[in-house]
Design a protein around this nucleic acid. Structure first.
Lengths: 252, 252
DNA sequence: ATACCTTTTCATCGATAGTGAACGACATCC
DNA sequence: GGATGTCGTTCACTATCGATGAAAAGGTAT
């Protein structure tokens, strides 16, 4: 485990400041110094540096993150082949079902949302672009886990644990494993308010050459999603979308 | 002009590395050291640091930007009120016209695209999310310039100049000024292949309390956009969209 | 086996990032 | 209006730490 190599403190501090600004929306030198227990001068020099290179913009004395992060974020997004090929299909899924549709990939043991398509539907609690969530508590995460090598799953569970978010969250390795087996059979992962109360979600894995490269989902309020008529419609739509994206990889 | 304050070299270097990775898509320590003329060990320590704090991920020996930048980018986007209120209207504009629609704000003297809505149409050359362009050479930029205080326009021209991108780019302050006056009259800014050959674009400013907070546009290949029947349709659609967003600010 | 990549580690040294104190500007309070 | 508090900004100082080259460790092809 190589984790002992030295790291550069100034860079770590810079990103702590960036994340503090993300949290506070905007902040001045004193607020940052306060928030992170830094000296005012240190906070100031960092803010000044980040502004000089363009990553912060100053608006009446308060610093905010600049559009350059938006540019980098877009580059990251485009860097996922599954986004480039899947985006339009996820949009169609949202249009077709009238619900929020997400495209998720695994990153560092968590599920990262690389695209979120709204079809006007209220998306309370649904993942937003760039957001990362525990995999065992989300439909998209479980769809990914179900097709990851077993030792990778072990690793992930060991690193992040199985924290509980609601009464329905899966918290034991055995329960998780049996659910993953079921997902492998049905091709559909379900989040029944396991991550957020009131939020239900259906997801399907995207498999290319026996490897999961992502998962797609639709999600919405539990009330609408428990309508027995809708479940087959929604799961089928999700499954089909995943399939279309898979085919896009093979041909296209 | 306060530009003499000290800046933190390590942080500047870190972002140079981040931008190099953005350019190269993915890279190892040697490639970065090469690209930026750094020692291999320096490049390595920086990469290692950025990976430790999660902003880079390592994939078979190559570093890539991580989803954390996507999260920051989304936060930046949400930080623009004009995005929060305008997004859906820009989507509708794209659907309605069948063309690429953009939402742009001014940042540090350039136009930054905060949202890009595709309606399937080929978007060659159109701005992408987070991209920044010179204002004098784009419809969205000119729509903004037309309603910025005159001294601000002076400042911007002084800072960024009026570089030429095609034969049609405006390169003199006088020509720019007369065009801005026309935009103020008609309410529509036109980019007639001034930024990129073959790309035509119509934009309208979004004014709230006499202040420009952004601009919207549709753009597409010159061939389609010179159809005399479409111009009134497109300009009208753009104008209306800007108007709806303005109203959303006043009420809503 | 060889040569040639790469990434990673290490000790050394000089630059520099962090610090606290101080200043000017701007509010707020009594 | 004088006092007090807070803010951003600057400065000189010094211990820290980031940069460095050399060399080790790992990988791949020849």
């Amino acid at each position: 485990m190589g984790g002992t190599t030295k790291t550069i403190g100034a860079v770590e501090r810079a990103f702590e400041i960036i994340e503090a600004i993300e949290r506070l929306e905007s902040a001045g030198a004193s607020a940052i110094a306060d928030e992170l227990s830094l000296s005012k001068s240190t906070a100031y020099t960092h803010l000044h540096t980040l502004q000089e290179i363009g990553y912060l913009r100053k608006e009446d004395g308060h610093y905010r993150l600049s559009g350059d992060f938006l540019r980098l974020g877009t580059a990251v997004q485009q860097g996922f082949p599954v986004y480039r090929r899947g985006r339009s299909h996820v949009e169609e899924l949202a249009d077709r079902t009238g619900e929020r549709a997400n495209l998720v990939v695994e990153e560092r043991g968590k599920g990262t949302c690389v695209h979120a398509a709204n079809a006007g539907g209220a998306a309370d609690g649904a993942m937003t672009r760039g957001e990362r969530r525990h995999m065992h508590a989300t439909a998209t995460g479980k769809a990914l886990l179900a097709h990851l090598p077993e030792d990778r799953v072990d690793e992930i569970v060991e690193t992040h644990g199985l924290p509980s978010f609601t009464d329905h969250t899966i918290t034991s390795r055995e329960a998780l494993e049996s659910e993953l087996a079921e997902i492998r059979e049905t091709g559909i992962a379900i989040d029944a308010e396991e991550s957020i109360l009131g939020l239900r979600c259906f997801a399907a894995p995207i498999l290319v050459e026996e490897t999961v490269i992502g998962s797609v989902s639709v999600s919405g309020p539990s009330r609408q999603f428990t309508d027995p008529d809708r479940e087959p419609e929604l799961t089928e739509a999700v499954r089909e979308t995943a399939n279309v994206i898979e085919l896009d990889f093979v041909f296209g």
